[in-house]
């Protein structure tokens, strides 16, 4: 290999580590329950037919073996903590450790979602402050934090679009999606009951205004636009795009996956976007965790 000393980290690649099941042997334990302070029950007589007779084949190991197992597995992963992770569209930025620390603070981490609101004031304040910050950053008027990821946010946003059109008397039939879009965009439009119509990009990889003008009609519910686009370019004609859509009563949805290029420099709410989602796991540094969890807040204009 002609690597001439270039490159850096090397993971712990040579360690062999079988599956956790292969390391198991009966009778090993990594847990200890406190003594029962109530009378023991006979599960099989309490549950009758519903009692589980055969146990699931879960592994049986001691604590040190579990620590080693998962630590060894971890060494087979690349990670932001090891080095640059230039995975486009995913915004693999530093995941600050204080985030992990505060998310585990007593009272926040152990709050039950159905606890009385009087006992949840702290978390509600956190939610409120985050909402206000995100509305300011996006320049939008309202926000919901409920969606669990970007794609889930798209789903929420397009349902919102649909509900609005319905309130105007016609749900409309199609959603325009540029050929440069992420796969979740068309998949989302489809699950919202819309036909997906492809919009061909122009020679610069951006929205072709003429094609847009041709394709937008009274049955167009929205355009799902990523801005900056998936080639990392700002749609400088964004105001024209919004105008063309709005003239036909269609809405502009923005996939906010690339918001890391805009925070503090430009606001979607100012350039004509009606509804958008953010990815807290991209722009706002929450860890990707090997594929999740994420969070995909949806922000929109007041009329929605």
């Amino acid at each position: 290999m002609a690597m001439q000393g270039i490159g850096k980290v090397r993971a712990h690649q040579t360690q062999n580590e079988g599956l956790v099941f292969e390391k198991s042997s009966p009778g090993k334990k990594a847990y200890k329950l406190p003594p029962l302070d109530v009378p023991a029950v006979d599960a099989s007589s309490l549950l009758g037919e519903a009692h589980r007779e055969t146990l699931a084949a879960l592994p049986e190991l001691s604590e040190i073996e579990i620590i080693r197992h998962f630590t060894r597995l971890s060494t087979w992963n690349y990670a932001i903590d090891l080095g640059m992770y230039p995975l486009g569209s995913c915004t693999m930025k530093y995941n600050p450790r204080v985030n992990e620390f505060v998310a585990r603070i007593d009272g926040l981490a152990d709050a039950h979602p159905y606890r009385p609101e009087s006992l949840a004031q702290g978390i509600l304040e956190v939610i409120d402050l985050l909402q206000r910050c995100l509305m300011e950053i996006t320049g939008m008027d309202a926000i919901t934090l409920q969606p669990a990821a970007g794609a889930h946010g798209e789903f929420t946003g397009i349902l919102l679009v649909r509900a609005w059109h319905e309130s105007q008397g016609n749900a409309r039939k199609k959603v325009l999606i540029p050929d440069s879009a992420h796969g979740t965009n068309p998949a989302t439009a489809a699950i919202c009951g819309y036909a997906v119509e492809n919009l061909k990009s122009n020679a610069d990889g951006g929205i072709d205004l003429e094609a847009l003008e041709r394709q937008v009609d009274e049955e167009t519910a929205a355009l799902m636009l990523t801005n900056p686009s998936t080639i990392g370019v700002f749609e400088s004609q964004i105001h024209r795009i919004a105008d063309i859509l709005h003239a036909k009563g269609a809405l502009l949805y923005m996939d906010g996956a690339n918001m890391n290029a805009l925070v503090g420099k430009a606001r979607p709410g100012d350039f004509g976007v009606d509804v958008m989602h953010l990815n807290l796991h991209k722009t706002f540094s929450t860890p990707h965790g090997g594929g999740g969890p994420g969070s995909g807040p949806v922000a929109c204009k007041a009329f929605l």
């Binding site: 204080v98 998310a103 956190v126 910050c133 889930h152």
Partner: peptide
């Protein structure tokens, strides 16, 4: 859209990030 309020643990982290940065 989903049960309860969403991935609240992620909200806490995102807010911590915004606070660590501030506008500047």
């Amino acid at each position: 859209m989903r049960g309860f309020y969403g991935n609240v643990g992620m909200f806490i982290r995102a807010l911590a990030y915004i606070l660590a940065n501030g506008p500047d």
